[in-house]
Structure formats: C-alpha cells, structure tokens
C-alpha cells in the first residue's frame, strides 16, 4: 500500500434542519486500501457516501476525493469513481453485453474499448456463453459478481460498494471478496459497507459510525485489541449499542 491519499475527509458534516446526519467525520483512505464503512441502520452511512461521491453538498467541513473537492468538483468525482448498490446496479431487461455497452457508453468509452473490456470480464467470470442472456435470468451470485465487474468497467481508481453481498451463498460471497481483494491488489481503492461483521475482517481499515460520528477507526487487529475482544462483531455491538437514535 502506498502513501497516496485517495479520500481525505476533515470534519465533514451534513445537517437536515436540526438533525445532524453526519457529525464532523474525519478520516483518510489510502490507495489500494479496502476501507470498511460500518454503522447501524440510520447511523449516517448513506449520507456520508452521497457526499463523498459528489451527489450531496456537505453543510460544513472539507473533503477531497481523488484530489477533487466535493463542493466544487463533484462532476469530476462522479466521472472517476465506480458505484455498486445491492438494490440497483444492472438493467434486468438488458442482456449482459447490452449492460456493459450501456455503462461503457455512459462513461464515454469507445466501442473498441468496450469490446475489449467486455471480453475480459466475460472470460474472467467464465460467463461468455451467457453474454446474450437477459440479466434477470442469471443466478443472484453471478449478478452480484457481474455488477461489481461493471462498476469498475471504466477502470475507476476508486469504487463504492454499498452492501454488495446480501443474500448470496457463502461460496459466492467468498468469490466476490476475492474479486475485491484482487481489485485492491491491482491498485484500486475500495470503499465498502456491509452488515456481515465477518466481512469487516477483510478490510485494511474499518470505521464504525454511531449517531453520525465516527466512534472508532483502525485495522481489524487494532480495533479488536482496543476493545479487548476477538471479533469485529463484538467491537460493533459494543459501540452501536450506545446509539441514542431511535432508528433501531
């Protein structure tokens, strides 16, 4: 891992009326790092991700993403990141190839580039024979792996993954994480949220949000020793139980 900073957030804050959704959060994410962004439902994760991906203007504080300022250069951020959510990533009524052409086109890739990249992904995931099938006919596990591959189709240096592994079988879940580890190894920075606490153990750095604040941040080893426990689950329970937000 190099010293290069990909995300630098300082006292980043978002308020909606009286409600402080994200409360002065500060952290750095380095190049090639897998950064786990944990928190209970309603802790403020989604709001923070929206600010970091250029979709929502902060109320105060600063943040640079890939060297771009979140206030003034949000369009540059959007062009240079990948994003995958659990709910919506692929068009079910388009074929695998059509989905890839569509996403490549949105990011301004040439036909030749799209062709090369599509073949690479179909080969990597061993799904070449399915390329003209509608996405909805694919098993869930394949869809998730394909959705991840398409989120990094335009070769972004940073990708946001929002609960990417919900409901998949354990072997597929591991294959998915192997894709993530491989992408990080090749220099991509991964920013991931998950409800599986065991998945936090794959991350180089983990932050835990409670009521809009980052209450703990560090490597899984550091956090486990700081809270004197043997699992990230216990670290999380320890912190998140202090929440006073009624969103349970």
């Amino acid at each position: 891992m190099s010293e290069q900073i990909i995300i630098h957030a300082n006292e980043l804050t978002k308020t909606f009326g009286d409600f402080v959704a994200v409360d002065h959060i500060s952290f750095n994410v380095g190049k090639g790092e897998i950064f786990g962004f944990l928190g209970a439902n309603g802790a403020g994760k989604t709001t923070a991700i929206k600010m970091l991906s250029g979709l929502l203007k902060p109320s105060s504080g600063t943040a640079d993403v890939l060297g771009f300022d979140v206030y003034t250069q949000s369009e540059d951020i959007k062009k240079n990141i990948g994003y995958m959510s659990q709910r919506f990533s692929l068009y079910e009524d388009l074929t695998l190839l059509e989905n890839m052409k569509f996403y490549g086109g949105i990011y301004g890739m040439s036909r030749a580039e799209i062709k090369v990249k599509s073949e690479e992904i179909l080969g990597l995931l061993h799904i070449d024979s399915e390329k003209n099938q509608l996405v909805k006919s694919l098993p869930l596990g394949w869809k998730q792996k394909l959705a991840f591959s398409i989120s990094i189709f335009h070769d972004p240096p940073l990708v946001f993954l929002d609960e990417p592994t919900g409901g998949v079988d354990p072997i597929t879940r591991r294959e998915f994480w192997e894709l993530i580890i491989e992408a990080a190894h090749s220099g991509k920075t991964i920013f991931v949220t998950t409800h599986y606490m065991d998945e936090a153990e794959y991350c180089n750095q983990v932050s835990i949000m409670v009521d809009g604040k980052i209450e703990a941040i560090g490597s899984p080893v550091e956090l486990r020793s700081q809270f004197q426990t043997d699992s990230m689950e216990n670290v999380f329970l320890n912190l998140a139980r202090k929440s006073s937000r009624i969103d349970g």
Binding site: A40, G166, H195, A240
Partner: peptide
C-alpha cells in the same frame, strides 16, 4: 435480512 448487527 438487511438489518444491522445490533438489531439482529
């Protein structure tokens, strides 16, 4: 499903 570790 989709519920955080504390609520679970």
């Amino acid at each position: 499903t989709g519920v955080d570790a504390v609520s679970r």
